[in-house]
């Protein structure tokens, strides 16, 4: 019982370290898209590790924690994808270090094709 609790506490600690690194990424990254990248990944693994730690500390909660983990794995990437797409559609610029933007090129080509049809 004692050892399980100690292992759980260490896993909980490693989860919070990952969440800390994610928030450091939010500060350091140059533009929205890179920030979303840092935020999504770190928060997903950080939350999963925290849940694992809690499950080891109080084993009777494991089923509900597993359910939480599944919902986080399904919903976290979806929300970050929607944020990224919305910010691209709203015209938020990519950072100066960006090397290619195929999505913008695609949208421009589509718009030009639509205008061509109208006139």
């Amino acid at each position: 019982m004692e050892t399980l609790e100690i292992i759980g506490a260490f896993i909980l600690l490693s989860g919070s370290i990952f969440i800390f690194l994610g928030s450091l990424g939010l500060v350091r990254m140059p533009d929205v898209y890179n920030r979303i990248q840092a935020g999504t990944k770190a928060s997903t693994l950080g939350t999963l590790l925290s849940l694992t730690g809690i499950a080891l500390m109080t084993p009777s909660w494991w089923s509900r924690l597993l359910l939480l983990a599944i919902f986080i794995i399904i919903t976290n990437p979806v929300s970050s994808h929607v944020l990224a797409r919305a910010s691209h559609k709203a015209g938020i610029k990519l950072s100066k270090r960006t090397v290619s933007d195929k999505y913008k090129a695609y949208n421009q080509a589509k718009e030009e094709a639509e205008h061509g049809n109208e006139s």
Partner: peptide, 14 residues
């Protein structure tokens, strides 16, 4: 995130 030079090379690909 931790390396001082921030080694990123971002872009959107298809």
């Amino acid at each position: 995130v931790l390396s001082p030079s921030l080694p990123i090379n971002p872009g959107i690909v298809e």
